[in-house]
Each structure stands twice: as C-alpha cells, then as structure tokens.
Amino acid sequence: MRPLPRFRVHRPESLEKALELLATLEKAKPIAGGTDLIPLMREVEVDVKHLIDLSHIGELNFIREEEGYIRIGATTTLSDLVASELIASKAPALWEAAASMGSPQIRNRGTIGGNLCNASPAADLGPPLLALEAEAEIRSLDERRWIPIGEVFAGPKVNSLAEDELLTEVRFKTPPQGAGSAFEKIGRRRAVTLALVNAAAYIEVEDETCRVARLALGAVADRPLRMGEAEERLMGKELSEELIEEVSALCGRLVRPIDDVRASAWYRREMSRVLSRRALLKAWRRCAT
C-alpha cells in the first residue's frame, strides 16, 4: 500500500469557483466522497497535484422533480438516494442499486457523480441509469452540455470528460404511472462487494402490450451496456414468463464478458441470463402497481 500523493486540497464553495480551479490548476482532480479515489491512490500511482473538494458546493446536492424530470445533483450521496421517497417510488431500479452498494459507511460518502465518473464497468448505478435513459450534465467554465449516461463511460475506469469538465447533474424523465423498473446484482457476498454481474430493467405496459422495454447489464463488457436486441424482442408483444426466459437467454449470448480474478466469463454469461430474467420479471410485476 503506497502513501497518498502530495496534493493540495482546495475547498471551493461555488460551482463557478470549482470550474475555475479545474480550468487553471495543473493535474487537478475533483473529489467528492473519495470512496473510490482514496483506495485507488493507495493502490496505483495517480499523477495528481490538486484535489478540488466538491462537498461544500450546496448547488450540487439535490434530488427534485421538475418539469417532467427527476433531477439529481452530482454530489448526492447513495444514502441520500436510499432516503428519497421520490426515488423509491418512481425509480425503484435506481433505489435498489444504491441500497446494494458498499456499506452504510460507504453509502454515506459515495456519490452518484463519483460512481459514474469512476467509470467502473461494474458501477452499480450504470445499468439502472441506462435503463431509465438518464442524461448527465457536463460543465466547464464556458460550456454546458447534456450527454446520454452511457457516454460518460469511455472504457474500464476511464470517463469521457475533459480535464476541465465536471459532471454536475443526472436527470431522467419521470417514469409514467404504470411503469416498472428493477435492479439485480450478484456478488461474492451481499455487502461491501463489487458486482460480478448487475442488471436493470425498465418496462411500460399498456393494454397488456409491452410498449417500452429497456434492459442494461454491467460488468459484462468494458462499460455498462444496453441490450438493444433483447429490448426489440419484447416491445409490442404481450409479456409472458416464456418470452422473458427466451429474451434472457439471448442476453447470455449477447454479452462479451472476460475472465478475471472475481469470476469467469462463462459464469458471467450464465448470470447475465439469470439476472436479466429476474430484473425483467420484477420490473414487469411492478408495472401494475
């Protein structure tokens, strides 16, 4: 275990000031909860001279529903998500993912923006936010843009942001009445564990017909992925356990997982099938309620 690099910590109290620091300081990185960054810096050499602490920026910490969107500030903690009635009732997939992560201690510090920007292929918030078709707001001093959540991920542990950019907000359309979503995960144990595979499903049913189906899997490729081909086979159909079983088997063939220290590619394929089925069934059951 290596000592932490010799960086300076800056504590801006406004977003404007944080963006200014990111734009002007050399080798600067934002830090929110630090639950990924600190262990990373103890494990590998991280070339960083300045850390910009985002925790004093009040305008980045919120969960609210506005003009048809659920909007979540980047420094909202996993515990904040779990405590939110709005998230629990409207986006149970996101709620379940947040509740499954780390430990109480980690959830009290880890943030939605940090989980995405850390860009782990196993990031638990990846699949539910993909299934909800969320977008991320990316800001720098002179630019502000929205990108689909999947585009935050550029590769294993690499995000797509430029050095002077910050992920400031995540938003998705408020799911309509009758929509259902669900998250499933398998790890080596239940708490404080990285997902071997994770999955999230989102379904809208109208007059017995599946109008919208979205399914996303994590830890089965270099970044979390939507299962477009599987979704196509569900939309416009009357859902049944048999159809979901068939589509889930397809997912097991669509993914391209790797063997690593945590699990074999074969096992991840099998679990992709199992978790796709569980997530789809659970999301479907939630449509009516």
Partner: peptide, 21 residues
C-alpha cells in the same frame, strides 16, 4: 470499518476521509 467515526452524525470510514474535508 474498524476506523468508523460519526461525521455530522453519520457513520463513515475515517481512513477514506481526507482530514481537510
């Protein structure tokens, strides 16, 4: 979790928390 403390009343790992924060 052996280093757990309360930060503003909530349990956190003090090994992951930079003192300046």
């Amino acid at each position: 979790g052996a280093c757990t403390v309360l930060l503003d009343g909530r349990p956190v790992n003090s090994c992951l928390l930079l003192a300046p924060l």
